[in-house]
């Protein structure tokens, strides 16, 4: 068991290191010159002072060879130093730390709504015997995946903030300001959850062990609760990492639409100002969140699925 844990932890660390490397390679080593991008943004007017270029190069270590740059950045990152923002000069780690809590609240609520809503929809769609109801319910997830998040946000704002002022349109104040962004974010997530679960539950309903259970005299409700749900939820757990990653990515659009502060807004402003150190830091943090969630799922999985425990002995 310790071997398994160790194996998974090392694997997760390797993926994270590779993700950092890939992001670094894209942002610093592509043919475009980071300094001219930075200067484009920071200085006004077209004139670029060569001395200023050199100073900047030295400051960001860009006068060194690519390997030294990479190793330096990696070393600093491992110590928790993600560099400084070009636009504001503030430390990147501090910017991200300040932005994360707001987004974490939003993400948690959105994920909760998505799992509850998506799970309920999938359960109802596979449990019902009415083909019409099933058809209607199963038509919803593709719709949820297809509608653009920014558009849903704007329509919700229009109806529930402007026409009927039930929720505040902008800002980070209070639970009420969290509702519309969370619902907006939950729609594509919930649709994904519903699609995966409905697929898994549909397969479970067609499995012969369900026929066995029905032949025991179990009702459909009992079969759904005792056999179908557990068999369908287990494989769907591996989706959690992707969902959390999508929440972070989705926050870029949603926080922009609802003018909230947070992780996504930081991404949006960093990309707009082409603030490369900040973008690198954000990408690495997002990858880290994904990797950690996946690691937790991997570690929990053998405890939940009896087929993965050792000792398949048929004497």
């Amino acid at each position: 068991m310790t071997r398994y844990v160790l194996h998974r932890v090392v694997g997760a660390a390797a993926v994270l290191l590779a993700a950092f490397t890939a992001a670094f390679a894209v942002l610093y080593l592509l043919p475009s010159d980071p300094v001219s991008i930075m200067l484009d943004q920071s200085s006004t007017g077209g004139y670029v002072d060569p001395a200023q270029v050199d100073a900047l190069r030295a400051r960001y270590g860009l006068d060194q060879g690519p390997l030294q740059q990479y190793l330096g950045a990696l070393g600093r990152t491992l110590r928790g130093d993600l560099g400084t923002s070009v636009a504001s000069g503030a430390p990147v780690a501090g910017l991200i730390a300040a932005a994360l809590p707001e987004t974490a609240r939003l993400a948690a609520l959105a994920l909760g709504l998505a799992v509850v809503g998506g799970g309920a929809l999938a359960t109802a769609a596979t449990w019902t015997r009415s083909a019409r109801l099933r058809g209607f319910l199963l038509a919803l997830p593709p719709l949820g995946v297809a509608v653009p998040t920014f558009w849903v946000g704007l329509v919700l704002l229009q109806v529930l903030s402007f026409r009927y002022p039930l929720f505040p349109a902008v800002g980070n104040r209070g639970v009420a300001s969290l509702v519309l962004p969370a619902v907006t974010l939950a729609i594509p997530l919930g649709a994904t959850v519903a699609q995966v679960l409905a697929h898994g539950m549909g397969a479970a309903w067609r499995a012969p062990y369900v026929e066995t259970a029905l032949a025991k005299g179990a009702t459909r409700t009992r079969v759904q609760l005792h056999h179908v749900t557990r068999n369908a939820v287990l494989p769907a757990l591996t989706l959690l990492g992707v969902l959390v990653g999508n929440v972070l990515a989705g926050s870029v659009v949603v926080e922009t639409v609802f003018s909230r502060q947070g992780f996504g807004r930081l991404v949006q402003s960093a990309v707009t100002t082409q603030d490369i150190p900040v973008v690198l830091g954000l990408v690495v943090v997002a990858a880290a969140v994904f990797v950690v969630v996946n690691l937790l799922v991997d570690l929990a999985y053998p405890l939940l699925d009896p087929r993965l425990t050792r000792g398949r002995a048929a004497a």
Binding site: A14, V15, V267, L282, V283, A287
Partner: peptide, 24 residues
């Protein structure tokens, strides 16, 4: 495939935002 795993570890939208940052 490990390379693909790494790309999948970064949410799609963030990855494209990072590329856009560099490409303009």
């Amino acid at each position: 495939m490990r390379g693909a795993d790494v790309l999948l570890a970064i949410p799609n939208l963030l990855l494209s935002l990072a590329v856009v940052t560099v490409l303009g």
